[in-house]
Structures are given as structure tokens and as C-alpha cells.
Design a protein around this nucleic acid. Structure first.
Lengths: 190, 190
DNA sequence: ATTCGAACCGTATGTTTCGGACCGTGCGGC
DNA sequence: GCCGCACGGTCCGAAACATACGGTTCGAAT
């Protein structure tokens, strides 16, 4: 029971256990993989070490089976709920970060071959189309269920951003195909 | 001159030096802060250690002033250009990651107070409006300059995503104000 | 009955990454 | 002449991360 720095990972763990009830690390891994994990990757090893930290800090309670698999189940404590509640009430200072390797490659496209850009765009279009299909499927399946409605709303943001990205890469592909991309290294128009 | 794992950071450093020419770490820090840094944060300490690694790997060359501030200037080598070119030609496997703390808080909004959501939405709206204004200003200032045109294109993606996020949070705010958010903890409509 | 694979469940370990504290320098302006 | 700010950089401990490893339970096909 010592004081520790709490990261976003910590609060995702706390939040998941608060909404799901008592959970094992494996439960967390799956629940996160089906939800926030789509936007923000949390390596599973973290989901084993982080609850341990939180338990030491008194924010989670540990119950270990004493038979069979000896699963470790974590439950949120009052202190954990308080910490989570405070965090939720706190304003968000950081602007979101979009870690997109494709975008970085595009940024440096003046150093690449023209066909690289076309291929990059094509790949991105397919990737985003696939992701959009997944999100829409999730909406169709779970969108109307009362109990999860507030969790589904983040899907709308995900979709909005996916549509924007898709539209963008289609534009890039069009430009690449018409030969005016990358702007200064493509064939000049006389 | 040993072989090392190259991360996205490595290629951003290589790419920056390739497009800008010989640069110090400080130059990189500023150049990245004005461009890709808007999307993907690269802590400045990395921009001092990473070039050192790349130099040891033979991808960069180091020239240190032997007077005054003894600045360290890095230049890209042929091997560096080759590595960069290969990377640019490689397909991108990873889907982008959107690290958005606000979104995570919204995901857990059922655990929060109703006014927390309203405030969260309001803050996000302001944050995105500010960011949009910055991007639009950059477009106005540099958008028409030939030499940087291919670098400016990523701004369009940034803007598209910002617009999508802004629209989303406005919708959230509207719902929060009309009292039907979070869905199951808001006042029930009879 | 037995093999087999898939889902289940978790640990260990060696790097990178990260944030942030800290430190000196040169220079323009008051 | 000294103040403050942009410049230019190092260091460090704590987290994060990827990945390899190791085992179990269970059902379905052989």
C-alpha cells in the first residue's frame, strides 16, 4: 500500500474492473482488446503487471484461487473507485496523439518513389475500409443494447475518424494516379 | 558501425536529416515540433540519443564544432539513405493508434458524474477548435509554397480528423446538455 | 482412449521509451 | 551590465514494450 504514479493504463485497468466487476488479467486483456484496444494498444504483459502495482497501492484487492489454475482475480477497492472518480472529473490537458506510420511515410514522400505513394495509399484505403466494416458490424450487433450504450459511443468517434482517413487516402490515391504526386518529383505538366 | 533495430523514431530522424540537410539534434527537435510532432510526440531526449545510435550504425555522420558551443551536426550517409528508401518502399502493417485520453474517459462515462461529461465535451471542443485554427493558419502561410507542398499534405489528414473529432464532441455535448447522457444514468424519459 | 489444437492463463526478461530535472552558453535588448 | 530567452545538450529512474516462454483445460476428431 504505497503511493504510485498512475498512468492512463492504470485508469483503464481500474475502469475496466469497475465496470466489469472482479476480473483476472486475462479478462482485462480480452475486454480491452474488444474495446479501447482498437484505438490505444495496451500490451498484455502490462495487464498482468499493472494490477499488481495497483494492488500494492491499495486500489485493487487480490483474490487468488487456491485450487486448480490458481487464477488471480482483482476487485476494485473504495480507494480505487475514489481515484478513478477523481481522474474522470479532471480536465484532459493532452491533445490526442495519432500514431500513424503511413502518415509519416507520406510526409517524407518527396524522398520516395512515386509508385511507393500509390501503393501506400492503396494499402491504407484497404486497411481503413476493413476497420470501418468491423466497427459497423459492432454497431449493428451491440448498438441497440441499453447496457452498453455509453460504451458504444466511442465507436462513433472511431468511425468518424476512419471515414476522414479513408477520404483522405482516396484523395491521395487519385493524385498519385494522375501523376501529380508527390508534387515536386512527379512528371511536370507542360 | 553495428546493426541496430530501427524504430519509427529512427526513420523520422533519418527523414528529417535527408530533407533538411545537416542538422543538430536541436534542429530536429524544432523541425519535428513544427510538423510530425503535432501528431506523434517524440520526446526531445530521444532526438539526442537516437542520432548517436544511428551514427554508430553508420547511417549518419557526425561533425562536431571544435570551438564555441561544440555543436554536433549530423549528416545522412549513403547507407542511411538506402535504409530510409527501403523503409519508405515497405508496406505499412500497423493500423494507426489514436491515443486519446478524452475518449477513454468518455468510454467510462457511466462511472462519472453527468456534469463531468458535459465539461469533458466542452473542453475537447475548445481544444479541437484551437488546433484547427493552428492548422488552417499553417495552410494559409505555407500551403502555396512549392517546396513544402508534399509535406503540407499531411496537414489535410490532420484537419480532416480534427473536423471529425470536433463534430463528434459537439454531438456529445448536445446529448449531455439535453440530459440523455450518459444514456443509462441520465434522467429517464417517461 | 488418445491425440491435437484452440482457447485459456500467466511469467520472465532485456530493451526502448519517456518525462523531466538539470546544466551551461551566447546574444539581443533594456 | 545584467536579464531573460533561445540555444544546445546530458542524465537518470521509472514505465512501457515486444516477445519468448511455459503451462492447463477442454472439446472434437481420430
Amino acid at each position: 500500500m504505497s503511493t504510485v504514479r498512475l498512468s492512463t493504463t492504470s485508469f483503464v485497468v481500474l475502469g475496466m474492473i469497475a465496470t466489469r466487476g472482479p476480473s483476472t488479467s486475462y479478462d482485462l486483456k480480452r475486454a480491452i482488446g474488444r474495446s479501447v484496444g482498437y484505438f490505444w494498444n495496451f500490451p498484455h504483459a502490462q495487464l498482468y503487471s499493472e494490477p499488481k502495482r495497483l494492488q500494492k497501492a491499495g486500489l485493487l484487492e487480490l483474490h487468488q484461487e487456491d485450487t486448480g489454475r490458481r487464477r488471480k482475480t482483482y476487485t476494485i477497492t473504495a480507494a480505487g473507485q475514489a481515484a478513478l472518480g477523481e481522474w474522470l472529473a479532471e480536465p484532459v490537458k493532452e491533445h490526442f496523439e495519432l500514431r500513424d506510420i503511413a502518415e509519416i511515410k507520406l510526409f517524407f514522400s518527396e524522398l520516395a518513389e512515386p509508385q511507393d505513394v500509390a501503393r501506400l495509399a492503396q494499402d491504407q484505403i484497404e486497411q481503413h475500409e476493413t476497420r470501418i466494416a468491423e466497427y459497423e458490424e459492432m454497431q449493428r450487433r451491440y448498438g441497440h443494447i441499453e447496457e452498453v450504450a455509453s460504451r458504444m459511443i466511442t465507436l462513433e468517434l472511431g468511425l468518424g475518424i476512419e471515414y476522414a482517413a479513408l477520404e483522405f487516402w482516396r484523395k491521395v490515391r487519385a493524385r498519385a494516379e494522375s501523376g501529380d504526386f508527390p508534387p515536386q518529383s512527379g512528371p511536370t505538366q507542360h
